[in-house]
Design a protein around this nucleic acid. Sequence first.
RNA 1: GCCCCCGUAGCUCAGUGGAUAGAGCGCUGGCCUCCGGAGCCAGAAGCACAGGUUCGAGUCCUGUCGGGGGUACCA
Length: 573
Amino acid sequence: MKLLPELHANLVKKAIESAQAAGDLPQFEIPDIPITPAKREGQGDYACPVAMALAKVAAKKPRDIAEMIVKHLPKADFVSHVEFAGPGFINFTLSQKWLKQQIEAIIVEGEDYFSLDIGAGHKAQVEFVSANPSGPITIGRSRGGIIGDTMARLLEAAGFDVQREYYFNNAGMQMVMLGKSLKARYLQALGQDEPLPEGGYQGEYLIDFANELADEQGDALVNADWKPFKEFAEAKMFEWIRDSLAQIGITHDNFFNEDSMFQDGSIWAVLEELDERGYAYKATEWAGASDEEKAKAADREPAVWFRTTAFGDEKDRVMVKSDGIPTYTLPDIAYHKNKIERGFDIMVNVLGADHGQQYKVVQMGIEALGMDPSGIHVIINQMVKAVRQNPETGELEEIKMSTRRGVYDTLDELVEMTSPDAIRYHMLARSPSSHLNFNVEEVVKQSNDNPVYYIQNAHVRCCGIAREAEARGLSDEGADISLLSDEELAFIRKALEMGEVIETAVNQYEPHKIAFYAQELASTFHPIYDNVRALGEGIPEDVTRARLRFYHAARIIFKRVLDLMGMSAPERM
RNA sequence: GCCCCCGUAGCUCAGUGGAUAGAGCGCUGGCCUCCGGAGCCAGAAGCACAGGUUCGAGUCCUGUCGGGGGUACCA
């Protein structure tokens, strides 16, 4: 579909050029022309405030500038009326005839009508979730998953060729600990009095794994070290994680293992290159360390440092520890180098706030390698706090998250209590930068009255009408769309904003915008459903036919917006 | 201490520097013999504080206060 703000902006641009050529406006450089959907009745459909911004360079009053622009505005089939108003706004009204034509176009093209070509020929990658396989997916991780998956859907709608990737590390100390923890549980399952290692994983899921392992293997592994346990736990955990995510419609195209970069040596190649470029050095403490820091580091073996201070960091960072094992910094840089080399134009990285600072070091690393980091975009989502209402005080209180034995801590438990659609919507309907209070009870208890079903019900209603029409042997073929009223067209107008919403969400990496748009779209629809009956006594057949056509288009529109959010579009509720 | 995020209605949250700051929940009052009422209509209620930039600030800058996260030779 065409983006209406862009089309309007082009008209304004031509009008200014034409006014300048005619001497109605002085010469000046034409700035970017902002076009916004009108905010209220009587202000047309789209507004342009550019005249106010031009007042200075044109040395004229905003209203006079607006008048000149309107005077020189070229004709366009989608605009029926233009006026200047207020302090200097130019208000455009969409043509009714054109709007009605869009109904046919939507039905002919289907959901593809709402696709853009801004990403055509470009590859995009979204990396999200990326949890190491040491425990089940938590509510907090789900947020990043939903944001990432929705971002991917929006990029696809914008025309990008999208890959969803999951980056994981199964080689670190955490995984060793997981193996050791499972071994302890395994020995316990066999009746031995074996304590968990210090700092081990206390999650009850390891008890289940251990029982399973004991059933399968008997006591064959009593003398094994942590490795087979780690491998068993890892395989089980990944299966679990993938199942959990699949429940809410999240899948990945590629799982990228950090370890593969150790095996192919690319990590060491990056280190060498950083060294050649003068960004690495070996020392016991960083180059600008204070005396205090130096004293602390006195008895350490040297480590390899990354000179991030060259890029404005407050201190240099360790890349390779004194024991020869890299910290996460080096693999992260190597990973992003790898991404760039795979030829993505856009790489979106969804991170939780607890990892949020790390991307800066990665960016410095990419720059240090002489590569262009501008294709990398980070969405940092703030933490999720599961809350519920205290029955005594009425206050919202936090439900403590614990991977050990929290009540509401895993995605699985949440799915059990609510529904995938409810989880997706509520997680999505917040700006990523906003701290999320996820009120479990609200999503559960009030589910009959929440926006999730409000939006889906719009689709259900369209389906209901179609079903009823079919039962009565009525069809919308050959409908005379001109019989529709302003009310229906107001909805179509709102539906046409979907392209702008997708564009903005993609350009600004803010997938939550689609969730709010969907709610607005539904609230434009439901009053019409109430007022504009398609079927019923006293409604002329040609009017019925036209209205059926309208609801047909509306059904496609809601299907599309629900798809974009990864939600189901039920036909009945 | 320093860095990042947040502070908008009773609650949960929207709000690309533009016209009269929006929605959901909750609350109050109306509307159903209707294509499924999981709906519609109406009402009360708000930009943490202080400066600054701008023709115009919830939005940008500085500071203060409050909340969250980070600040490891953990990931």
